[in-house]
Design a binder for these strands. Sequence first.
DNA 1: CGATTAAGTCAACAGACGTTGGCCTACAAT
DNA 2: ATTGTAGGCCAACGTCTGTTGACTTAATCG
Lengths: 194, 194
Amino acid sequence: MSTSRRSSTETKAVILAAARERFGADGYERATIRAIASDAAIDPAMVMRYFGNKEKLFAAAADVDLRLPALDAVPHAHLGAVLSAHFLDRWEDDEAMMILLRTGVTNEDAAERMRAVFAEQVGPLVARVCPAPTEAPRRAGLVATQVLGLALCRYVLRLPPIVGMTRPEIVAWLGPQLQRCLTGDLGGGANPVG
Amino acid sequence: MSTSRRSSTETKAVILAAARERFGADGYERATIRAIASDAAIDPAMVMRYFGNKEKLFAAAADVDLRLPALDAVPHAHLGAVLSAHFLDRWEDDEAMMILLRTGVTNEDAAERMRAVFAEQVGPLVARVCPAPTEAPRRAGLVATQVLGLALCRYVLRLPPIVGMTRPEIVAWLGPQLQRCLTGDLGGGANPVG
DNA sequence: CGATTAAGTCAACAGACGTTGGCCTACAAT
DNA sequence: ATTGTAGGCCAACGTCTGTTGACTTAATCG
């Protein structure tokens, strides 16, 4: 058993897993092919054999799907809460999210990918639930602002007060925030302070 | 004049300016000492002479002061608006902000620095204006969430809908957001959807 | 069995990086 | 004019990076 060889697809998967972990933890530049290969207990040349390139390996590792649920059945008043719980889930079990955030800040390809994710996945969803269709892109962008801001502070910068918040606390906070992004006043009205 | 030599402090300043630009544009790893020196029209060895280290050069370049105004005279209802305008100003004319954001995502030293900025500069300010002093750190963290989320999407990832917002539009949007971070309900109450 | 193919290793390349030490060269004081 | 010194340049070091090509081993098939 210990001397048997892995199948091609198997090793490819192992490499990809190691790559996701390294890219997510270290970002694009500091995640070296040698380190990824070492994590996968394999020779660096194998990585090149299967993925051709560091860039292509990254592209494969940073493939993000938000898996946004269809929100048609959800009452509009609960959209924010549902979305915030969903984003929190995705963020905590899909390393690709962290990869894109960590590398999108330095790498233009990753930044473009991030833009595409929000334009193609969040945009259409927002379009179906927001009052004026014209406002959909901006509202999707504001959702990005909220989600990425929280993820940045909690998972990347690890600001203690934000890390210290429990999951329900975050949902309770982020829910209304997202709700305002989706269906709230965009800032044209009077000062809504009370 | 063209053959005259610069003074020590002068070149040091030139190097620092070039370093700020490069760190801000490229992040820590991709901003090479050679490139910085080239921008400053100087030999890489000079950078070492004056700053000793890449790390020390970075530390000098990433020195951030939010220059937060004293908000004691501002009516509580306008705190969000004042703060959002101030942050927007700081963000657009101090490259150190971008440096910290770009590098704090990959570099642990920069992340620590970012944490310190919000704990030491935003924290005390929030403590003086928020209802319960115990909540100050968390509220400061939430402010960070808002400010960094917006800056990330607008200046780093360049999400088109967010880039397309005018300055007044942003202040009009961010103001109430910050207001809620400072004096609003933290999420303990009932569902505030209308 | 022998031959073919797929999976994996090894050693090395060329380039870029941070960093170092020695060598100029312009200026100021003697 | 001669020295001293501080600002600046050059060439090189050791290391790490992505990447390549030739080699070795295990499984498969005739």
